Amino acid sequence: MNIKIDIVSDVACPWCYVGKSRLEKALAMVPEINADITWQPFQLDPTVPKEGRDLKPYYEAKFGSAEKVQQIFEHMESVGDAEGIAFDFSKMERTMNTLPLHVLMLEAEKEGFKAKLKERFFKAYFEEATDLSKTENIVKIVAEFDWSAEKVNGILENTGMLEEVKAKISYFQSRGVSAVPFFIFNEKYGISGAQPPQVLADTLRQIQQEMAAETSIAAGERCDVESGECL
């Protein structure tokens, strides 16, 4: 049975990286379910300038103190260890405006590797401490997918694609998404946050049961051509 899953997320969101890992574990728990996953764009902070910001002062201003930020970093690194994610905030120096990354992923979606590029951006930012505010660093990453610098620059200069991404973000905001990750199942059920794999697996099973019940009801509202019986 196929279940459509839209994951609203941002590359600058560590919990989105964790959520990806936990969803993969949940899907392994329900092998009978086929998931049609689409990564959807979101920006946690669209006010970050194009050139990015120094990461630690940015977080200190947001959370109130260097001590609080250090606690958050240590907690995320502990969570990451359990998920096989090597968060290393001590090496990270810059945060970025993620809109250009979403534009590149929009094109990658058309070419069939959006999920792989999404994960590569996560890894580059959170594990390799790559400054993704610099186009030259982005070019190096997408070169792994055989994109040239000229192609990258052409995509980033495409105002139509930029507006398409902004429209998608506005759409999910209009549906009440204010925190990420946010999982939407079959465009009907929503779960906020990087929930444990068991919670996600149970949700998938419940949706599967409801879909099966709906299919059963629909199958009963018919007449058989050969026998003439209406069931």
Rank of each mutant, 00 (worst) to 15 (best):
S133R: 10
K134H: 07
T135L: 05
T135A: 09
N137D: 08
V139C: 07
V139A: 12
K140C: 03
K140A: 14
I141Q: 05
V142S: 03
F145M: 12
F145Q: 11
F145N: 08
D146K: 07
W147Y: 03
S148T: 15
S148M: 04
A149H: 10
E150L: 05
N153E: 14
G154N: 11
G154I: 01
L156M: 10
E157L: 13
T159M: 09
L162K: 12
E164T: 11
E164S: 06
V165H: 04
V165M: 06
K166Q: 15
A167N: 14
S170D: 15
Y171G: 03
Q173I: 01
Q173E: 08
S174G: 04
S174M: 08
R175K: 15
R175L: 14
R175S: 01
V177R: 05
S178W: 10
A179R: 10
P181Q: 07
P181W: 13
F182P: 02
F183R: 02
I184R: 02
I184S: 02
F185R: 02
F185S: 02
N186T: 07
K188R: 08
K188Y: 10
K188D: 13
K188W: 10
K188Q: 13
G190Y: 15
G190D: 10
I191T: 06
A194V: 02
A194S: 06
Q195P: 04
P196Q: 05
P197S: 06
D202F: 01
L204I: 09
Q206V: 11
Q208M: 08
Q209F: 09
Q209W: 12
E210A: 13
E210K: 10
E210F: 10
M211T: 07
A212I: 09
A212P: 00
T215Y: 09
T215C: 08
A219S: 14
A219Q: 08
G220C: 13
R222S: 14
R222A: 13
C223M: 06
C223Y: 02
E226T: 14
E226I: 13
S227E: 11
S227A: 09
